[in-house]
Design a protein around this nucleic acid. Structure first.
Length: 454
RNA sequence: GGCGACGUAGCCAAGAGGUCAAAGGCGAGGGUCUGCAAAAUCCUUAUUCAUGGGUUCAAAUCCCAUCGUCGCCUCCA
């Protein structure tokens, strides 16, 4: 299997640190409001990739964090006059609602920053001992100059960055590239006791500390949006490798951004489309199809045209799957013949190549193309078998949406009552009998007709 | 200004030296089917891969330049 590694800038053969086990850390959302479609991309893609790894025989330890202490959370809390924890708890819960609706599987661990304060403090303390950190007032900073390979991940040159650096507001730092590990508390902010005075963790330290606690000093894959490469991941890497002296992450995977009208979808620009809205309008299958239909590293445009297109593409597969089920049912055995092996090999070949989901989808479209019209039930079974097998990582739901069943029953009852008013009791009784067969009990009361499930 | 990515049919999108006169999806047009509609199905829709040079027996794929778009350099998935 090959994975594009941001660190080397090329595709590399994937070899896990421990045979058959993959340890993976994905940067999760800062919980101060509902997640948007841009946030959903890494969540869906890397969860699907993790499932693919499982499909390929790995057991995967998957960590996705929540940043539940940060300026925006504090701001939101102050605005509402509640404790930041209330905001964090609320939006963690909301996140799970969206993730679940998107068919994203929960991670093995979902650590939250505020539960790791002790580990974070210890981390910083050890950096200080090793002279990678210095204190200014109640703040503690990481000394970038002490870490020679700083800039390697984001392919930047520290001295270039210093010369092009924007006006630095913080006079405390020795070097504009240095970043904060621990922030001294200000009035009205949540704080924790520490050797440097009351304060809270800086942004980058949490991922280092939590991943180290849960996955160890070194692990296989670190993933997130490519807007995190610098400074977030660069800084995480610096502080972690400075502390342990070991190579931290083997493979860095970064997804491309989602844009709206040629501008990045971002909470700060405000051009966001929440997952909740998207779910309501297009449904989870269309969203997943949309995300899989372009390679995860490329930027992707979000628009109603794209979403409708994805929805149509999804429906094409779903319809065929439904049709096959009508022909051959659900309960059948398929012999693993050459056809199945060949198709499976094709699928593995493209997904093993840096998770090429667009190509993977084209294999399904090819399979689905004319199975029904040929009337070949053996072929239908094999196609369904394969698509179901691959659905382990695609996570589509091919079951038709039956939410409108109430309306459907009401409509049947209307037809029946039309028949009754014509005194066409043969017709009306036939409808009632059919509904009864389907488990629906019809009752003609003096004030109208009612129905209920038997 | 620095760094990086990208530019493939009406639209979306794979392909990364020969098997490419370039997958797949959406859309559009035509045929079959059909009481009508939908679905399904068949056919058509890039002699060409932003532009200009170069390397090579061979380039959409490698190199250089130009134009254009996006991202990062500040919080961001």
């Amino acid at each position: 299997m090959k994975i594009y590694n941001t660190l080397s800038g090329q595709k590399e053969e994937f070899v896990s640190l421990t045979p058959n086990v993959v340890k993976m850390y994905v940067c999760g959302p800062t919980v101060y409001n509902l997640i948007h479609v841009g946030n959903a991309r890494p969540a869906v893609i890397f969860d699907a990739f993790r499932r693919y790894l499982e499909y390929r025989g790995y057991s995967v330890i998957y960590v996705q964090n929540f940043t539940d202490i940060d300026d925006k959370i504090i701001k939101a809390a102050n605005l509402e006059g509640v404790d930041p924890k209330v905001i964090g708890d609320r939006y963690v819960a909301e996140y799970f609602k969206d993730a679940c609706a998107l068919e994203i599987r929960p991670a093995t661990y979902h650590p939250r920053t505020t539960n790791f304060i002790e580990q974070i403090k210890e981390f910083i303390l050890n950096l200080e001992k090793k002279h990678f950190a210095y204190q200014r007032g109640s703040d503690v900073y990481f000394d970038v100059s002490a870490f020679p390979s700083y800039g390697e991940l984001s392919h930047r040159n520290p001295s270039d960055m210093r010369s092009g650096v924007r006006v630095e507001i913080n006079e405390n730092k020795d070097d504009p590239l240095d970043f904060v590990l621990w922030k001294g508390s200000k009035v009205g902010e949540p704080k924790w006791e520490s050797p440097w005075g009351d304060g809270r963790p800086g942004w980058h330290i949490e991922c280092s500390s939590m991943s180290r606690t849960l996955l160890g000093d070194s692990f296989d894959i670190h993933a997130g949006g490519n807007d995190l490469i610098f400074p977030h991941h660069e800084d995480e890497r610096a502080q972690t490798e400075a502390l342990t002296g070991k190579k931290w992450v083997s493979y860095w995977m970064h997804n491309g951004m989602i844009s709206v009208k040629e501008e990045k979808m971002s909470k700060s620009t405000g051009n966001i489309f929440t997952v909740r809205e998207a779910l309501k309008i297009y449904g989870k299958n269309a969203i997943r199809m949309y995300l899989f239909s372009k390679h995860y590293r490329s930027p992707i445009e979000f628009s109603s045209e794209r979403m409708e297109e994805a929805k149509s593409a999804y429906s094409r597969i779903a319809r065929v799957m439904e049709e096959i089920e009508k022909h051959v049912g659900n309960d059948f055995h398929v012999k693993e013949d050459e056809f199945i092996k060949a198709q499976r090999m094709k699928m593995i070949e493209v997904l093993d190549d840096d998770f090429n989901t667009p190509q993977a989808l084209s294999i399904i479209f090819d399979l689905v193309k004319d199975v029904i019209s040929t009337g070949d039930t053996e072929k239908m079974k094999r196609v369904k078998f394969l698509v179901d097998e691959w659905n382990y990582f695609f996570g589509f739901d091919f079951k038709p949406d039956r939410k409108n069943i109430d309306d459907l029953v009401e409509f049947d009852l209307k037809l029946r009552n039309d028949a009754r008013s014509r005194k066409d009791y043969q017709q009306s009784d036939e409808i009632r009998k059919k509904l009864e067969e389907l488990g629906i009990e019809v009752m003609d009361l003096t004030d109208g007709t009612r129905w209920r499930w038997k």
